Computed example of a mutant assay.
Amino acid sequence: MSYNLVLTGGRVVDPGQGIDQVTDIAFADGKVAAVGDGLNGSAAIVRDVSGAIVMPGMIDFHTHVYWGGTSLGIRPDELARRAGTTTWLDVGSAGPGNFEGFREHVIGRSETKILAYLHVSFAGIYGFSDRVSVGESCDLRLLDANVCADIARANPDLVRGIKVRIGRHASGYNGITPLELAIEAAEQAGLPVMCHIDAPPPRYEDVLAVLRPGDTLTHCFRPRPNAPIYSDGRIREACFQARERGVMFDIGHGMGSFSFEVAEAMLAGGFPPDVISSDVHALCIEGPAWDNLETMSKFLHLGMAVPEIVRAVTKTPADLLRRPDLADLAVGSTGDATVLRIDEGRFRFVDVEGKHRTGARKFRLDSVVLDGRLWHDAQAT
């Protein structure tokens, strides 16, 4: 069989297929065509990626890519050439009132793939900038569960869940009510919920108590107040109870939601995140989040094994999105792959509190395969 592209000599890490070995992977007709040794004999393009990690296309499970439609949106294809992301999940930039604009003007024109969690707030996240900050969940008149469910059901190819932001900054003193409305919309549409949490009220434990199996708490390693650890570093019992019920824990780094102190305590206590994501937006794209490659590098420094980091940006988010084809390298699957290298040296990492760590290893992008073609070669730029 002839192939359009073969990546040869790389360490293929595919948690979904249980693969972690040096081998070749071939693409044809926009799909994965074969995985195995000696595939480079009949290919239009053969790329030697010896020493690199070849993984399914990276999914960034918490992003804001409604560029031009919201003040926090970034350009997805542009950042993908730095970060290696092949699928973006935009979580709540758009709500029922402006999702069609997001669909037509951004999603429909993007080369990289974009899926969405629809905000229960009618206008999405409309007041988030360095000069204006208005919590969209503060006014319950904007949170209509029926309208949200209608738009979600009308766009099943793109809307994979419902988003809500709660906490003192996002929802004022409305407590759990915005989350309850999001769950009502999600139940009507048969979808999961992602819940943002910031400063109390409500408390971290109160949010976890309401979330259902398959729902996601994002900003899960946020600093105090509303951190998942007590002042002595112990993990809150509610975290273990929620995980046992099937609640998922997503990093969502962003500009205010990742603390080294918290992450170190959580990992030491045997509580790694389910999903690693950047929460990249206009106010953190130049630090402290930068992109998901930077967030992954922080967890590499913290001691997470490469296969578990890969799982947290491929198989787990793909399963939550009910799109397993996006994040495995099985024959016939979506022909997306992210090729990474690990540099060694001294690298300075910073969290949202301005605290630093110095690491010896860092991920670097080698190339991106999109729909079976070599879409971006970072080594050539």
Score class of each variant (00 low, 15 high):
158 L>T: 15
201 P>H: 04
193 V>Q: 00
159 V>C: 04
252 G>E: 11
204 Y>N: 01
143 L>A: 07
171 S>H: 06
207 V>R: 00
154 A>C: 09
147 V>I: 13
254 G>C: 09
184 E>G: 02
199 A>L: 12
188 Q>G: 01
135 G>V: 06
255 M>A: 15
190 G>E: 03
177 T>G: 04
149 A>W: 05
199 A>G: 08
243 R>D: 09
231 S>A: 15
178 P>F: 03
187 E>M: 13
178 P>C: 08
225 P>E: 04
158 L>S: 14
219 H>G: 05
173 Y>D: 12
195 C>L: 08
250 D>Q: 03
231 S>G: 11
234 R>P: 08
249 F>L: 14
229 I>H: 07
240 F>I: 11
147 V>D: 10
179 L>D: 02
249 F>A: 10
210 V>P: 00
252 G>C: 11
136 E>V: 07
173 Y>Q: 09
257 S>N: 15
183 I>F: 00
241 Q>S: 14
195 C>E: 07
206 D>R: 01
153 R>Q: 15
188 Q>T: 03
253 H>Q: 12
168 R>D: 13
175 G>I: 01
145 A>Y: 10
194 M>T: 15
171 S>T: 07
214 G>F: 05
208 L>K: 00
154 A>Q: 14
204 Y>F: 15
247 V>A: 02
184 E>D: 11
133 S>C: 12
249 F>R: 08
203 R>T: 00
219 H>R: 07
161 G>M: 07
206 D>N: 01
150 D>G: 10
242 A>T: 02
168 R>V: 11
240 F>S: 14
242 A>C: 09
166 I>N: 00
141 R>L: 12
200 P>L: 04
163 K>N: 09
232 D>K: 09
257 S>K: 09
133 S>T: 15
189 A>Q: 05
217 L>M: 12
154 A>M: 12
252 G>R: 07
151 I>M: 13
186 A>L: 08
195 C>F: 03
255 M>I: 14
249 F>E: 06
198 D>M: 10
230 Y>L: 12
190 G>A: 05
174 N>H: 01
225 P>F: 01
195 C>Y: 03
234 R>K: 14
187 E>Q: 15
236 R>V: 03
159 V>P: 07
220 C>G: 06
245 R>Y: 03
215 D>G: 00
174 N>K: 00
136 E>W: 05
237 E>C: 06
152 A>Q: 11
184 E>V: 02
222 R>G: 11
235 I>F: 05
